[in-house]
């Protein structure tokens, strides 16, 4: 009889161990697409000789602070988002804070939300637009956002008919608690627009996704109608 008990015990052990190993959510950021990643693969610069180093001008190696600049571009109140490469054409509504101080999102799965307390698209700073990846029973407006690649174009239209063109720089996924909120929403010297949606495994208990997908874009053309 004992051999049956042993086999059951063995089976249970294997089940528990493999479940724990398989069910681990990602704990690190994953860069899905970026210009840098592509360049890194192509070439590594040859190491510098000592003589060259001494004659070189002083090497600058730091990220500069966000300095307030005279900004003659007002930015736009965005009303429509178009991403041809993944077939997105959606209305944009303004969103503020949730009761807990998080970013609010539209109730609708076909609309996207612009973080109104932050930056207007087209101005210097990080503008943010968030949309759902899915609804209760199927894909939503940002379901295909993860398919975007560095170089893809995004169009944002303003209430006055202005059109801003942004180009994707990087696509990355982060565990939700380790998302770089300051990099996405905080100060920057660029005219940036970041798109956010959910990704990764869905946590039934917390009824939420365990990761966030961020698409970093910068302004490459602007057509103001005023």
């Amino acid at each position: 009889m004992k051999h049956i008990l042993y086999s059951i015990a063995l089976g249970l052990l294997v089940f528990i161990v493999s479940f724990q190993l398989l069910d681990e959510p990602a704990k690190e950021a994953r860069v899905l697409s970026s210009f840098e990643a592509e360049q890194k693969q192509s070439e590594e610069p040859p190491p510098l000789k000592r003589d060259t180093i001494e004659n070189e001008p002083i090497k600058k190696n730091y990220e500069p602070a966000t300095v307030v600049q005279q900004d003659d571009q007002t930015g736009i109140v965005p009303t429509r988002l178009e991403i041809p490469s993944i077939g997105v054409d959606a209305p944009i509504g303004p969103e503020g804070y949730t009761d807990n101080g998080g970013m609010a999102v539209p109730d609708s799965v076909t609309r996207v939300g612009w973080f109104e307390p932050g930056t207007k698209p087209g101005r210097i700073g990080n503008a943010v637009i968030a949309g759902h990846v899915d609804g209760q029973s199927g894909p939503a407006v940002f379901y295909d956002l993860k398919e975007l690649k560095a170089g893809d174009e995004i169009f944002v239209y303003g209430e006055d008919g202005s059109k801003m063109t942004f180009t994707v720089e990087k696509v990355a996924a982060y565990p939700v608690e380790e998302s770089p909120i300051r990099d996405l929403f905080g100060p920057t010297n660029e005219r940036a627009l970041n798109l956010i949606t959910c990704t990764g495994p869905y946590d039934q208990e917390a009824s939420g996704y365990t990761e966030r997908l961020a698409v970093y874009t910068t302004l490459t053309a602007s057509d103001y109608k005023q």
Binding site: F19, L22, D23, A65, T66, V67, V68, Y97, T98, N100, G101, G102, M103, A104, V105, V109, G113, F115, P117, G118, T119, G125, N126, A130, G131, H132, V133, D134, G135, Q136, S137, G138, P139, A140, F142, Y143, V176, S179, I181, R182, F185, G186, P187, I196, T197, C198, P201, Y202, Q204, S207, G208, Y209, R212
Partner: peptide
């Protein structure tokens, strides 16, 4: 210098799980 700007305290909740990959673990 711009020390900070309006930022939410947490990321938006952008999914209901209707199209989630079933966790096969």
């Amino acid at each position: 210098l711009e020390d900070s700007s309006a930022m939410p305290s947490s990321m938006p909740e952008t999914g209901f799980g209707g199209a989630a990959d079933t966790n096969n673990a």
